[in-house]
Simulated scan of single mutants.
Amino acid sequence: MKILLLDTNISSFPIYLELKKLTNNVYVCGSNDEDFLARIARKKYIKLDYSDLQSLKRHILKENYSAVVPGCNDISYLTCSKIKESNKNVVIDPIDKTEILFNKEKFRSYSALKKLPVPKVFKVHGLNDIRVKVLVKPVDSYSGRGIRIIENEEELIGAIEEAKCYSRSKNFIIEEYVNGNLYSHTAFICNGKIVQDFIVAEYGSANEFVVDTSYIDYFFDKNLLKEIRQCIEYIVNDLKLQDGLLHTQLISNGNRFWLIELTRRCPGDLYSRLVELSTGYPYAKMYLKGFLGILHKEEICKKNDYVLRHTVTTDEELDFYSINYHVSINLIDYFSLAKSGERIKKSPFGRVGIMFVSCDNKNDICRIKDIIMRRGLYSLSV
């Protein structure tokens, strides 16, 4: 078996390790030869821009891979979806279905047609008299880039131009700002049914549109979770989606919820490791099984531990020297992304590392989260 992984970022490291358990012939592909997996894979790193479809198709045809697996970014997944028709070994949804989920404008249109719970969308000409907060965002960007809250018409043009700058297609969407807490619902689908899912509470301490702190919420309202599951399974069966992961960001005020974004690629910043450390569930293994056509429901959760994931970032550009902790924590894992002396850009453009913190219970994990949200856990410069 010979497998190609389209990603060299550290977030795909758990996927890479699981693939290595299946075969020694695991190749990684990307344009940055200094990236994490490019260095780890060494001679099995392919320096190739996988967004270049023709070059990628030629490479896959030449090397005759048994399977192609997308990593933890949208371009990787979209590329796999685009080459599906020309390669029988790519087990993935076709591009028309993929774009419904990945493109914010198309997903909002689909949701309106199907009466799914999503924020209200506004037309530009309908904003002559803004009386509520609205969000202007790119239709196809990521990591909170290009999103702005506006409350009056004078801010609209600037927000639209900013959104277009971060959009690959130069398109934007304007939608209502809904109040509530941000969560992700991450689910594995088999034969149109959810076989395992998790609710993760998410927060942004350095940038309100960028998740940098999260943990599994074992106490999420069961009735609301039932409604979310019904909604997700409806989408899966209506679009006839392939078996595999369906990851959803949503906002809930405790009584209702709004779908914000859906994706089928593995979430970044080692999200898979958060689930595995917390529950023992083999998230990365289940993710790749979807693209090998062998996803089944035999895997189980072995524990319910309290683990907090935090991406170390900054709300202002600075020179990074070290992480100086102001509070004692039980750090169980840390992945460094920056070197001492490096200039770090503010979130979402720069990251220092990803930490995993073990907590005693619900109160303890909330305590650490609150300290992080106050930006009181650590400092990065002298």
Rank of each mutant, 00 (worst) to 15 (best):
V236C: 01
V327M: 06
L239H: 01
I83K: 10
S167E: 08
L19Q: 02
I329T: 11
P14D: 10
Y183H: 03
S66D: 15
Y234T: 06
Y306L: 01
K120W: 08
Q242A: 02
E155K: 11
S111N: 09
N24M: 05
K20S: 13
L239S: 11
G30Y: 00
D221I: 04
L156H: 12
R374H: 04
I60M: 13
K104G: 08
V312W: 07
S278E: 11
I130L: 14
H185W: 11
S358V: 06
S109F: 09
A206P: 02
I10P: 00
N181Y: 10
F220N: 06
R145I: 05
S141T: 11
L250Q: 02
I344M: 04
Q54F: 13
V124I: 13
V118F: 08
E155G: 07
I354S: 01
A338M: 08
L274R: 10
F320D: 08
V275W: 11
I216S: 00
D360M: 12
E175K: 02
L101M: 13
V26Y: 03
P348F: 05
Q54R: 13
L61C: 13
I100Q: 12
I10M: 12
G126S: 14
L337R: 03
G341A: 01
W258P: 07
S11E: 05
I75T: 12
S340I: 01
N255I: 04
K302Y: 11
K21R: 14
T23F: 10
L127W: 14
R229F: 07
K297T: 08
V275G: 05
D52W: 03
L377F: 09
I40A: 02
R273H: 05
V26E: 08
F291G: 11
L337S: 02
V357C: 06
I130Q: 06
Y334T: 05
G244P: 06
D49Y: 02
N330Q: 05
N304V: 02
D197K: 06
Y287W: 00
V118P: 00
I92C: 13
D364Y: 12
N253T: 11
I130T: 00
E34V: 07
V121D: 06
I147F: 00
L4P: 03
T248V: 14
D269P: 01
S272N: 06
E208G: 07
K57W: 00
F172A: 02
S86A: 14
F209Q: 01
Y271K: 06
S111R: 10
